[in-house]
């Protein structure tokens, strides 16, 4: 079927581009390591406040923060394809239109999957092992990849709309840290100021963090898990819907 094969070849193209772009590859691989090591070292004494090991606490947050910032690169890649005319070149072939987007999204998901795996392995070296065991690892990785996909949508939609890599980077940079700090990613909401607790409780990142943190620290907590999937699905529908809408405008 041409849709499947088109998607595969688009995916393959992005993977080759990633592997052959040393700077991109370096950041893709070392960003997660830097996040894990620096954050957990910097805030290690928070462990005392939280009554436990901070690395154990923060791993979930770092996995998601990494997915979040990775996802934002997707939009700049599509801007490159628009500017260079490569998108036009593909559109002049009978290639399935949706495979162009799906190929990119799958490569994003795959990258986040690999990066998260690195973080989890490194965290394992630092003594973090999920309470849910090996199966927990699998669930964590799938959840993070799904989460990354939902956020890739924002960046893709922005890229398609503004056709400016600077804008995508600007918005991404402005959003990343506020959203991260005003979530349960790096700090227990109980220890935050009241207003921040409120923001955090509505912050989509918190839902995903809580689900993964439960898998690592507690075990299977279906309530947090189903809430996280509900929130991620909702975001996916909105962001990927927006992406599709913007893509159709660019394509026709």
């Amino acid at each position: 079927m041409s849709f499947a094969s088109d998607t595969y070849y688009m995916f393959l193209r992005w993977m080759k581009k990633l592997v052959r772009n040393p700077i991109l590859l370096f950041f893709s691989l070392f960003q997660p390591i830097i996040f894990l090591v620096l954050f957990t070292q910097l805030f290690s004494s928070f462990g005392l406040l939280l009554g436990g090991n901070y690395t154990l606490f923060a791993t979930a947050g770092i996995v998601l923060q990494n997915a979040f910032s990775s996802a934002f690169q997707s939009g700049t890649a599509i801007v490159d394809d628009i500017k260079s005319g490569f998108l036009t070149k593909i559109l002049a072939t009978p290639a399935s239109r949706s495979s162009i987007l799906l190929g990119r999204l799958l490569s994003d998901a795959f990258r986040v999957f690999a990066q998260s795996l690195i973080i989890l392995l490194l965290a394992y070296g630092l003594g973090v092992f999920p309470a849910t065991g090996i199966f927990g690892y699998i669930l964590i990785l799938i959840t993070v990849a799904f989460f990354g996909l939902a956020w890739s949508g924002i960046s893709l939609a922005l890229g398609l709309r503004t056709k400016s890599a600077e804008t995508v980077f600007g918005i991404a940079g402005t959003l990343t840290f506020p959203l991260l700090f005003m979530s349960s990613a790096l700090m227990k909401p109980d220890l935050m100021p009241k207003w921040m607790q409120t923001v955090s409780s509505y912050n989509p990142i918190s839902f995903a963090v809580n689900a993964i943190r439960d898998l690592i620290m507690t075990g299977y907590v279906w309530s947090s898990f189903s809430q996280a999937y509900g929130v991620i699905s909702l975001i996916s529908v909105i962001t990927l819907g927006a992406t599709l809408y913007e893509f159709k405008k660019v394509v026709s």
Partner: peptide
């Protein structure tokens, strides 16, 4: 039509990473 035509646009368009 897309299967029967070849199209070269104004600027050179290739994927330089490939």
């Amino acid at each position: 039509v897309r299967k029967l035509i070849g199209v070269q646009m104004q600027d050179t368009v290739i994927d330089e990473d490939l």
